[in-house]
Amino acid sequence: MAKQKKIQAADPQKVDQQQDVYHIPVMLMEAVDALNIDPDGIYVDCTFGGGGHSREILKRLGKDGKLIAFDQDPDAKRNLPDDERIVFVPHNFKHINRFLKLNGFAKVDGILADLGVSSHQFDEGTRGFSTRFDGPLDMRMDPSQPVTASAILQTFSQQQLHKLFEQYGEVTNAKTLAATIVQQRNTNPLQTIEQLKQALQLVVKGNPNKYFAQVFQALRIEVNDELGVLKELLEQLPGILKPKARVAIISFHSLEDRLVKNFFKKGSFEEETYNPFERETKEQVFKIISKKPIEPSAEEQKLNSRSRSARLRIAEKL
Rank of each mutant, 00 (worst) to 15 (best):
F156Q: 13
S157E: 04
Q158Y: 07
Q160C: 12
L161F: 02
F165Y: 09
E166F: 14
Q167G: 05
Q167M: 05
E170S: 03
E170Y: 01
E170A: 01
T172K: 06
N173P: 06
K175Q: 10
K175C: 09
L177Q: 03
A178G: 05
A179V: 11
I181A: 06
I181L: 01
I181T: 03
V182A: 00
V182H: 01
Q183K: 03
Q183E: 13
Q184P: 10
R185Y: 07
N186C: 05
N188K: 04
L190M: 11
Q191E: 11
Q191L: 08
I193M: 15
E194F: 02
E194A: 13
L196S: 06
Q198C: 02
A199K: 01
A199Y: 03
L200H: 05
L200P: 06
V203C: 08
K205M: 03
G206S: 06
K210M: 11
K210I: 14
K210P: 09
K210V: 15
F212Y: 15
A213Y: 11
Q217N: 10
A218C: 07
A218S: 15
L219M: 04
E222W: 08
V223I: 12
N224A: 09
E226F: 00
L227H: 04
L227N: 06
V229A: 15
V229F: 05
V229Y: 05
L233S: 02
L234V: 03
E235A: 13
E235L: 15
G239P: 00
G239D: 15
G239I: 06
L241N: 14
L241Q: 08
K242S: 07
P243M: 10
P243K: 12
K244Q: 10
A245N: 00
R246T: 09
V247N: 01
V247W: 09
A248L: 06
I249V: 15
S251R: 08
F252D: 01
F252H: 04
F252L: 00
H253R: 07
S254I: 14
L255V: 13
L255P: 11
E256L: 00
L259A: 10
V260S: 10
K261E: 12
K261T: 11
K261I: 09
N262I: 02
N262H: 07
N262S: 05
K265C: 05
K265P: 08
K265R: 12
F269Y: 08
F269T: 04
T273E: 14
T273I: 01
T273N: 10
N275V: 07
P276Y: 11
E280A: 13
T281V: 12
E283G: 09
Q284L: 13
V285L: 15
I289C: 13
S290R: 12
K291Q: 11
P293T: 11
P293E: 07
I294N: 08
A298E: 14
E299N: 11
